[in-house]
Nucleic acid binder design. Sequence first.
DNA 1: GGTAGACCTGGACGC
DNA 2: GCGTCCAGGTCTACC
Length: 336
Amino acid sequence: MPTCTLRVPADFDLARDVCSYGYFLLAPNHWNPRTRVFSRVLATRDGAHSKPVIVAIRQLRKAALRVTFSRAVTREDKQILVAQITRMLRLDESAERIAAFHARDPRSEPSGRGRLFRSPTLFEDVIKTVTSCNVQWPGTIQMNQRLCEVIGSKAAVARGKRVARDAANAADVYAFPTPKQLARARVTTLRARCRVGYRDQRIIDLASLFLRSPRQGGIDQAWFEDPQTPDDAVCAALVKLPGIGPYAAANIMQLLGRYSRLPLDTESVRHGRTILGFKGSPAQVMKRLHKHYESFGPDAFRSYWFELWDFYESKRGPASTWDRESTGKTFTAALL
DNA sequence: GGTAGACCTGGACGC
DNA sequence: GCGTCCAGGTCTACC
């Protein structure tokens, strides 16, 4: 099996930093709690000749990861794959920025938490966010699984190969659909086979926007990812997208590394009431939550999230021990 | 600017 | 096995 070694920041911890946000439980992502290997299918290019590759990532020692590919890859494809892994694991987030977060919220310093797992592309983060709206967590798991199986490309797997054995089931050999694949998908397919419900047309519209160039009115991904772009401008642009409201926009912003906004939902209200002791209507509790985390400034989301994550782990054990098929389906407070 | 109701699915519940 | 109800965020119409 072709492999490569990836240098990572000294404070990076694969188990802690992969199992830091719920998306690590969504297809095509797969964390194996027994072997502590993260694996998934990654696309090399978004073209007719795209050949998805299964990658398996394990921590070798401090500051180094071993990445195993399911097939030989060209130098160009390897660069594309490493860029996607870097985005997913937030390897480009500097130690200084993590230290600044710990200075604002020392509660996370002992564990070293700071990085939040995300998708290899902004497109996948946006679609995953849409599938997490107005549905309970098992529904989100189901939609992502079916989007991969029904629309995504299948990676070729040689029998008995170790990379394939790290995958939990047959579904783990499918890539997340590309913008091209979803833009071409039929509304009826998304609704009947992927079970995305009323999100069908919105997902197709979003995929079309990602497919078009900024000149053609498409989404300017570089602009969204550019740290120089003001948060207010990013938020205003996000809520104009189909299927994206205030909650989804704030969530996509944290996935972009902009932690000043809070994606508050019913889960947050539950947290505000049970853990922080807030009283009143959902709207009043949300207002108090915004006020409560305001003091963490540009890291408000991280403080909020790790507090919530601590609560889940106090009920279900460390997230790195969660199995996608059991604990991973029931960790939210609504299902506890 | 604020609010009500529709959108859809899956699960819980009663019969 | 079937019908009903409910949870969940976004969108639109309406006040």
